[in-house]
């Protein structure tokens, strides 16, 4: 590959050659050349070399023993055996023994090989010449000539029609691949704008799976609710709950600063989307004294006593509130869907 003689101009010239070049008297900084090789103890003392040999052999033997240990552990320890090992704690005997024996078996091979290389193989440093990477002008000229000849023979420059149509065909053919990707998913349409909530849907307490009554929700408490009719074993449960999840708190009505919020609440019981408006984490770190709710993912903080407006962090707008009321039997119910999309902002949100 790089055996031909090459122009030297792309390598800086001022540095001298490597081997034992005698310093020119006028340059105190001249390269003195590679220092002479200094022998190691092992090079001079056969006993030391023998010692190294034994160490290497010992390491390789240890590796063999560790592999035997690995197989023995695999057979001996049941997978659920938990043992207490200070300071690790109650760990799996199998994981610990397999990992340690495998680790030792591998490490010892490596350590043996490196020790062998370091102490017994020659450590004479050798210099290898570099050759410039760029081709000589002759080579370049030959390549260019070959290329031109090839191009000429194909007549690609002359028969423009062929060239143009070929580029056209090549440019168009990947479109098939792009088109095929179309069915990766549906178009957005209004999907992000609606949830399962609708007028009259009861608020189901996620702890008990029973509908919530107004008196169940006391001041200072926190409850999570989902819409009536949604079941955990529904095929689309995760996709639905990703938009439907509600966070229910009760605030003394006179502490609610936002007028709309008070109207949309029922006697201070407010229902907010549990899905953060930043990137959609379930936000629910509710501080009942400050009424702040914090997102554990990126620390957006919302004030639930003031229309859930953003008071800190990267969220761009308030949490959507669900308008709720009480039906004839005293159960909390939704008075419609959210009036804005829940979850993260998107371009068409408006």
């Amino acid at each position: 590959m790089s055996s031909q003689e090459n122009p030297e101009e792309s390598l800086p010239a001022e540095q001298g050659d490597a081997h034992g070049e005698v310093a020119r008297n006028d340059d105190p900084f001249a390269d003195p050349g590679l220092p002479p090789h200094k022998p190691r103890i092992q090079d001079l003392d056969e006993r030391a070399a023998k010692r190294s040999e034994r160490v290497v052999a010992f390491l390789f033997t240890l590796s063999m023993l560790a592999t035997v240990g690995f197989i023995a552990s695999f057979v001996a320890f049941p997978i659920d055996r938990i043992v207490y090992v200070w300071p690790l704690g109650h760990v799996s005997a199998l994981n610990l023994s397999l990992g340690m024996t495998l680790g030792i078996a591998l490490f010892c091979i490596g350590a043996g090989a490196v020790h062998w290389a370091r102490t017994l193989m020659s450590d004479v440093e050798v210099a290898d010449e570099r050759h410039p990477i760029s081709a000589t002008p002759e080579v370049k000229a030959k390549v260019m000539a070959d290329f031109k000849a090839g191009a000429q023979e194909s007549a690609i420059g002359r028969r423009k029609l062929i060239r143009t149509t070929m580029f056209g065909a090549l440019a168009l053919v990947p479109l098939s691949g792009v088109v095929l990707l179309r069915d990766l998913g549906p178009l957005p349409e209004k999907r992000l704008r609606t949830t399962s909530w609708a007028k009259g849907k009861l608020l189901i307490n996620q702890n008990t799976m029973e509908p919530l009554r107004a008196e169940d929700v006391v001041v200072g408490s926190l409850t999570f609710a989902m819409p009536e009719g949604l079941k955990e074993d529904d095929h689309d449960f995760n996709t639905k709950i990703a938009k439907d999840a509600l966070m229910i708190v009760r605030i003394q009505p006179d502490e609610i600063k936002d007028k709309k919020q008070r109207e949309w609440a029922h006697e201070g019981i407010v229902a907010y989307s549990k899905i953060c408006t930043h990137v959609g984490c379930p936000i629910s770190l509710y501080e009942q004294q400050t009424h702040h709710v914090l997102c554990p993912c990126h620390q957006s903080t919302f004030d639930l006593s003031d229309g859930a407006r953003v008071i800190f962090g990267p969220a761009g707008h308030a949490l959507p509130q669900l308008r709720i009321g009480v039906n004839g039997e005293g159960y909390l119910e939704a008075l419609g869907d959210f009036d804005e999309p829940v979850g993260p902002s998107f371009w068409e949100r408006g």
Binding site: G16, A18, D31, I104, A105, L106, I109, V114, W116, R130
Partner: peptide, 29 residues
Amino acid sequence: GRTNNNVVGMPLLPVYMAKAGGFFFLVFG
């Protein structure tokens, strides 16, 4: 002795083979 026109060190076979090969086992271990 180490210039822009050379590279000084140990040959791939055997030293570097042993060191680099061994290092794989060390890392894995």
